[in-house]
């Protein structure tokens, strides 16, 4: 790790200011992703603003009957919250399918949304990677890309977003509240948070530098069953090969794209009375593989069918 200075933020506005004013500053929340990347010299901020203790960890009811979850709430506390468990079981399920208990005890909602890809070439600084070094090339394109994206990728980057939590948030139609450099809080959606790689895969989210996620907002739970499924190489403590979150008629896919992928085509097909199989196929009709990840198209299709069927069966 390169040397950096550290400060603990006392309020959100000054944290935002500290990071907005310094292009080499970063927020530090749980640290479980940022420190990992800093140790590997993938990220080298010169200043860290610790937002972990900002009073932004509350989970509270919203006027419209939803929930507002503070960005600093740990993954564990969100999954353990009785309201989340009762009304948004898909979110609790998604969280507890991710990482390990120790990681979830540290990881925050904001950090999880902002976590970066686990593409093996991104993690190996001896390999070309457009995300790390714009213009360097993408090693994954013709490499060992078993876990690469099948949707929304570009010829410049085929990395996936590894988050579990955000797949459920996307299926639930969750919103994001973020504080900008001016101190104002703006609203966007989890589905719109991440930007397509295009030819700028190093630009990952719609947040401007120094913008701080302060909360995610859950609309009232949709009617219908909620299901989370994650396919992976071992039973636990492993990233997903494909994830599916179903919340009533709303569906999101994980591990298949640069972002948690709202499956609008599948939702439309279902709404039109089509079978789960037809719905899944509609969503994945545009899927493209890069070689070793070809199986993910079939895998995601089957997992989606199964998850929809399970949700329609009313089980969660």
């Amino acid at each position: 790790m390169r040397p950096f200075t550290y400060e603990r933020a006392t309020d959100a506005a000054s944290a935002v200011k500290a990071v907005s004013d310094n292009p080499n500053a970063r927020f530090l929340a749980g640290g479980t992703n940022l420190l990992d990347l800093m140790k590997l010299e993938i990220e080298h901020p010169t200043h860290l603003v610790d937002v972990g203790r900002l009073p932004l960890a509350a989970i509270e009811e919203t006027a419209d009957g939803g929930l507002r979850i503070g960005a600093m709430a740990t993954n564990s506390l969100v999954a353990a919250d009785p309201r989340v468990r009762a009304r948004y079981p898909v979110l609790a399920q998604a969280i507890i399918h991710g990482g390990s208990p120790q990681l979830r005890n540290k990881a925050t909602v904001g950090g999880n949304l902002m976590q970066r890809t686990r593409c093996a070439y991104f993690y190996d600084t001896t390999k070309p990677c457009n995300k790390r070094q714009p213009g360097a090339g993408c090693s994954a394109l013709e490499g060992l890309n078993r876990n690469a994206a099948i949707l929304g990728a570009s010829e410049h980057c085929i990395a996936t977003n590894p988050s579990d939590m955000s797949v459920a948030l996307t299926a639930l139609g969750a919103g994001v509240e973020a504080m900008t450099a001016t101190g104002a809080v703006r609203a966007l959606t989890v589905a719109d948070l991440h930007l397509a790689p295009g030819d700028t895969p190093h630009i990952e989210t719609a947040l401007s530098a120094g913008e701080l996620i302060t909360a995610v907002t859950l609309p009232p739970a949709p009617t219908g069953g909620q299901v989370y499924r994650k396919a992976r190489d071992r039973a636990s403590y492993a990233g997903g090969l494909a994830m599916v979150a179903v919340a009533g008629g709303q569906i999101a896919l994980g591990g298949v794209a640069y972002k948690p992928w709202r499956a609008l085509k599948a939702e439309a097909a279902l709404a039109a009375g089509q079978t789960p199989a037809a719905a899944a196929e509609a969503e994945l009709a545009d899927a493209r593989d890069s070689g070793r990840n070809a199986f993910k198209i079939a895998l995601t299709t089957r997992l989606t069918v199964a998850a929809i069927a399970q949700a329609q069966g009313g089980k969660s």
């Binding site: 686990r118 093996a120 993690y123 190996d124 390999k127 190489d233």
Partner: peptide, 18 residues
């Protein structure tokens, strides 16, 4: 590149308790 692709225990998966 002549390099092994799994360079950590997040990539090289040994059995976990579950």
């Amino acid at each position: 590149y002549g390099s092994l692709i799994n360079q950590d225990v997040g990539g090289y998966l040994v059995p976990v308790h579950a």
